[in-house]
Amino acid sequence: MNSSTRNVFLLVLAVIAVTGVGLIVASQRSAASTSSSGAAVKTVSYTMQGQPQTVRLTKIAGDAFSGSRFVRGADTAPVTVVEFADYECPACGVFATTTEAQFKAEFIDTGKVRVAFRDFPLSQHQNAPLAAIAASCANVEKRWEAMHDLLFRSQAQWSESSSNAFKAQLIGYAAQIGLDGNAFQTCLSSNQFNNAIQADMDAGAAVGLEATPTFIVGGYRLSSALPIEGLRAVLLEFGVK
């Protein structure tokens, strides 16, 4: 191979390497600076199964909590967490079924943390909007938490369903948690919660939501679900032991 061919080849390699590294760095930057003011980032480290883990929390502008409908925990709790989630998102389901019970027992039930759940149905999940409506309808009879738990627990059974089949499944779920069947069906077909769900989504967009689930912890955005070890470390950062 002559030296000019070799140099061109090396140049091409260098361009690919620089572009690739540049793209990776740019994607990190964009994640760190979506908040408008200050772009303060907290880094929290913890150990899980002997492996060091690091999470980044980005300061957000604005109030993610205001207007929340599904709130658990004491109003006097020192830290408020706002969870934005989609009932059809697998990562949200994993959090709800593997971590949330422990989190609730340790932090919500003990008055240390107040948690608001806000709907953020993603456009690529066809059944997510109706699932959000179903949870709102269950809330009419104060059974939001039961519907929330049941939807996440049975996510695999309905996430691939056609919309008609899903509606039938929802009616079954409503019966399981003791809702008034007729009222629930009427509510499900109505659009009475569309504005409320849209308000949740607007609140999510306002805090620079990138993925579900996203947690706003004491005014900082955490863009992934963490295991309980991670949540303990994050809350410790906010003075909650």
Binding site: G20, Q28, R56
Partner: peptide
């Protein structure tokens, strides 16, 4: 191999929690 290294690096950074 270079492209493979870059993609694996991206996935690794995500795994470490350093990159979305």
């Amino acid at each position: 191999a270079l492209l493979g290294t870059l993609v694996a690096l991206y996935l690794w950074l995500y795994h470490l929690g350093l990159s979305p």
